[in-house]
């Protein structure tokens, strides 16, 4: 099963994307916990693109193309966007020491990317033909 759709790079799209994941997860018979983890990870990446990807004044908010693919053992969601190049795998995320800190002392950035990376089984990124391609996969 493969399904592709494109969606405006606007905050209101986040809920729509999660809805699509819910319906595919249900078709796949995925348990709720795994479905939630995939939703959370994809939500963080999509939010990042929408909130930070188009900050240049002349940038056009081109839609994000999303492909969901269900295989026997895997469910993957690929996001392709024309935002500024950004590799989440290279982004500094809070380390163990930071996570132990009191909220008063902790850095506030990087939590979303950390959640995206740690809630899926496989995360890949490439920049190709002017597009960021993020692929998030969970094992069924």
């Amino acid at each position: 099963m493969k399904k592709t759709f494109s969606i405006p790079a606007e905050p209101d799209s986040l809920e729509v994307i999660r809805g699509h994941i819910d319906s595919v997860a249900e078709d796949a018979g995925l348990d709720k916990k795994k479905a939630y983890k995939l939703k959370l990870a994809v939500d963080e990446i999509a939010a990042n693109i929408i909130n930070y990807g188009f900050q240049a004044t002349d940038s056009v908010k081109e839609p994000i193309e999303i492909t969901m693919e269900l295989l026997e053992q895997h469910l993957s969601v690929t996001l392709e966007d024309h935002a500024i190049p950004f590799n989440p795998l290279e982004k500094a995320i809070p380390g163990e020491e930071d996570l132990k800190k009191e909220p008063e002392d902790r850095p506030i950035g990087g939590l979303g990317i950390m959640l995206a990376r740690s809630n899926v089984d496989d995360f890949s990124y490439e920049f190709s033909k002017g597009k960021n391609i993020n692929k998030l996969t969970i094992h069924i």
């Binding site: 999660r18 939500d43 963080e44 939010a47 909220p103 008063e104 506030i108 939590l111 959640l115």
Partner: peptide, 14 residues
């Protein structure tokens, strides 16, 4: 559902 946007509010409040 709560993403990191919610975590940031919790951290801010603390």
């Amino acid at each position: 559902f709560m993403s990191s946007a919610g975590l940031r509010i919790i951290i801010f409040a603390k």
